[in-house]
Design a binder for these strands. Sequence first.
DNA 1: TTTCTTGTTGAACGATCATATAGCAATTGC
DNA 2: GCAATTGCTATATGATCGTTCAACAAGAAA
Lengths: 202, 202
Amino acid sequence: MTDQKTVQPRFKRLAADDRAAELVQAGLAVLASGGITAFTIDNICKRAGASRGLIGHHFGGKDGLLAACYAAAYAPWFQMFNAGGTPPDLPDLIYELFTDRQFRRDGLNIWLALWGEIAVNAHLQAEHLRHYQAYETAIRQSVARFAQERSRQVDAANLATALIALLDGLWLELCIAPGLMNTHKARRAVMALLEPHLGPLA
Amino acid sequence: MTDQKTVQPRFKRLAADDRAAELVQAGLAVLASGGITAFTIDNICKRAGASRGLIGHHFGGKDGLLAACYAAAYAPWFQMFNAGGTPPDLPDLIYELFTDRQFRRDGLNIWLALWGEIAVNAHLQAEHLRHYQAYETAIRQSVARFAQERSRQVDAANLATALIALLDGLWLELCIAPGLMNTHKARRAVMALLEPHLGPLA
DNA sequence: TTTCTTGTTGAACGATCATATAGCAATTGC
DNA sequence: GCAATTGCTATATGATCGTTCAACAAGAAA
């Protein structure tokens, strides 16, 4: 009979936070590839190599996991736009958003799936609104500072509104018409909005 | 015993096309209020006051119904942007898109739900791409004609790309942050993009 | 080596899902 | 009044869904 010591462990115990993070990453991967209808307990556990009971244990259930996925998707943005911090320089921001690393279909598919849920889920929508307002404030301040540095008079609030919508729309286009959208086209579209008001950005 | 004549009919027979149209309308209503996860045979039949077997009978199943819903959602756009017809005047188009009748959350929720599915459903995405290219052509021609009439030199393709993305982004914003977006803000955002390139539109 | 902590599994359960289809029944035609 | 047409119901079926939880087991501590 096999020595107990040589038996392969059935699973590896992780710290609670580590396991939760793995499940969130699996959830994001499932959203990226299959959208919100693929976001099921079975799909996520298969992806994470874990058992279905863990979702209830760590998140209280599927809805809690989705909320955690939203928070994880938002975390990089939160760092970038956190109220109280200095908003990024506008050219740096635009540059960064349209690198191949950021302007990627799978990552933006996550947002498209989440938007679909935010539209009909009051709980998620309330949380999104809090983040959105911080984001809008940061973008508006970036625009205002850039204009002021170049002695340009602009309606920063309106330009921020238009910029935010344009960014979201370009993301959406990459998801639903990927062959027709790329970083080059996206950058030029953004410049078409900003440069007449702010002058050259590059 | 009750006379046969006075018995209330159990259901009303409709022409096949009429019943199919009702089911499509029910499907769109379900997408508008609950998103793609609420798009189930039971929800749609409850909404239509019909029996589940009709979905299979008229559409071959749920996927066929979703395709029909997409076609129905697209039909008004098809009329507006049909390749071969005259694209609308740009100011008329912008005016029309941001009336309270068109810029409405429930209608735009349908698109948000469909976009989520288009992103991950190859069949639907292929159909969408056909329509999208006709739409882009029409918008580009509207922009080009408007610019030409005012002796303005613009990159019509780039401006059309930006305009399409901005329109989609404004729709999206109405769905996910409805308290913060309205027709007035949306119009002004569009003008911020177009007027520096094309001159006054109103 | 034994005990303890708690992460984890995976099956049971009831609900919901989409499809298939026998047969009912509204309505028209003869 | 009866027959024909075909729209339509509603049930059966197997699969998938999310939640629950008893009990297992990895790994640390004593």
